[in-house]
Design a protein around this nucleic acid. Structure first.
Lengths: 340, 340
DNA sequence: TTGTAGGCGTTATCAT
DNA sequence: ATGATAACGCCTACAA
């Protein structure tokens, strides 16, 4: 059996309370005693039970993270930021994969709350009013990342300005001489992020006096195959609705699009330009290297943690709850050709 | 405050013990009572405290996972297998990123044991005798994945036959008419996996009567840039030590190698063939699609979980502890040219 | 500065 | 079938 606090106490000739204090408030214990206790802990390789501690102190030094899918390419980057920051605060992270299902996400909230997590980071393409009941009775701080809430419960979110980001994409393409710009967007149903990016695309076109055409827009669920198929559909009508560039709502879809283009004999960017979105690590590993817009995943993850940690110590005032927009950045690489 | 078991008990007009039974051994409680209790739980949206349960029952229904780095491309796949299986057993997973450091890994074991995890899945490129002390006093079941133990403590491991896998790579290349085969291997220091794969390469060459030359082997730490640089070095002496194919110890390095080749005007596979290792999702997304050997990540993860769950209920007999080899599979795609 | 005692939310044992 | 009651390992007043 593992050593308990009492074992250490006995070995050090003190009470359990003193050992506890040595652990949590070393300033309150006599230096000599402290030394003895520390030695005892060392010798018995004592490791406090996080479980017992959590029960007693009603906090678990644990954060919950609900993601739509761990195989989503952005997950690693987001997690990296979260992990680093939590470590800094001595927090552990409990991961929950909702598998893109709302029911599973609900379950995630339940389970995580059973683990007394002191906060939950929630990532989903959409947060609707369905979540309100759960969110209400949870009484654990929740932050959103990479999305904007459409629920009634006020929720703070860390994300980029999606509209602006896609606007910037269009602006960039235009600056490179493109006027016929197609888009592979996110599925609109249950996807706020997808909506916003599409909106940015439309705003961009409008701003540069380019007419919007539904025939130049296709949709996909952010994965490679979706990108491939969407591009396929675009290609099917390229004669009637020509385009010289395609912007996408995700790097992974951009890869699919490029592959599709290649399979049909088009070269990227010589014949058609393609833009990604996210700037995942792969973006710089493929040929052609992807020109894309970078989301600050690490920062978003880290900020979310910070916010939760703060919220745990003192309930956030209404003014602290809200959308925090972090800066995105356009990364110029090789997948866009300049027509000038 | 969240409802506790006592609140539910009161609402249902029973004792806490009965509620507990309703939860864990519903067969032991009167159907009518059960109904009442369930309704009460429902109404109060009661969620048992996993913490308290863990403390009392001395098990936490939690598994620990220590990985060298969450940004490693294979992580998602391994985790997927682990997650699915743990879900099946009602287990949660606590993740720990050792950041490729032994000290951090040690810390991981400590911390996870503090969380009463009922088992730990450990992933590292190497497990040396340094781990013995920790492993000994941990008295929590541990399984290795994707590596073989070099520690004294008997450890069960789920992995592929690395030597055989790389042998198969060479055999495949030879069958396609290649005789001058270079390799980008894993760094040998502190990397058992790397050693084994290199060994497979040498065995392959020997088997087909091809002379081994150190000048055809370069090393890297499995990342894109390592692959790029290793290829650079190989290219530096390609006049003196020519090769028509390169096999690598990781898909990510293969991508780097290909990029390097492209940057120097070589086309893959027309001029030089490249083989990956792992068969990560990206392998089929790039151009050319990577010919590679697939590791059964999902199965390995799932088997590890199963083993731990079993070990938790009954201590494994010595005969159950050991190396479990899962089948790998060569996936033929587009990055290798047939010279025949 | 240190010790005592009660409690955190469950489960498990032993009665009833 | 159900109810007291005592752990589980730790924290935290409160008292000394």
């Amino acid at each position: 059996m593992r050593a308990t606090i009492r074992d250490v106490a006995k070995a050090a000739g003190v009470s359990a309370a003193t050992v506890s204090r040595a652990l949590n408030r070393p300033d309150l214990v006599d230096p000599e005693t402290l030394e003895r206790v520390r030695k005892a802990m060392e010798e018995m390789s004592y490791q406090p039970s996080a479980i017992a501690r959590g029960l007693s102190a009603r906090r678990s030094d644990t954060l919950g993270l609900i993601v739509p899918g761990i195989t989503d390419f952005f997950f690693n980057e987001l997690y990296k930021g979260i992990d680093r920051a939590s470590q800094q605060y001595g927090m552990k992270v409990l991961l929950y994969d909702s598998e893109h299902s709302r029911e599973r996400a609900f379950e995630g909230f339940s389970i995580l709350s059973g683990y007394q997590v002191s906060g939950i980071i929630f990532t989903s393409k959409v947060v609707t009013e369905d979540y309100d009941p759960i969110l209400q009775r949870l009484n654990i701080p929740v932050v959103l990342t990479l999305t904007q809430s459409a629920a009634k419960t006020p929720l703070t979110a860390f994300r980029i300005d999606e509209v602006r980001a896609m606007f910037d994409v269009v602006a960039y393409l235009v600056s490179r001489g493109h006027r016929q710009i197609a888009m592979i967007a996110g599925k609109l149903r249950d996807d706020r992020t997808g909506e916003l990016r599409l909106e940015g695309y439309r705003e961009g076109l409008r701003h540069f006096g380019i007419e919007y055409s539904e025939a130049r827009v296709e949709f996909g669920q952010y994965r490679f195959d979706d990108g491939y198929q969407a591009m396929q559909r675009l290609l099917d009508r390229i004669r009637e609705v020509p385009f010289t560039a395609v912007c996408t709502a995700a790097d992974e879809m951009a890869l699919g699009a490029i592959r599709c283009l290649n399979d049909h004999g088009y070269r990227v960017p010589d014949d058609i330009s393609v833009m990604g979105f996210d700037d995942l690590p792969i973006a710089r590993m493929v040929t052609p290297r992807l020109t894309t817009v970078a989301q600050p995943f690490h920062e978003i993850g880290a900020e979310a943690v910070k916010w939760l940690v703060r919220a745990a110590s003192q309930p956030p005032s209404p003014s602290e709850i809200g959308d925090y927009l972090l800066p995105h950045r356009l990364v110029e690489r090789e997948s866009v050709r300049s027509m000038n």
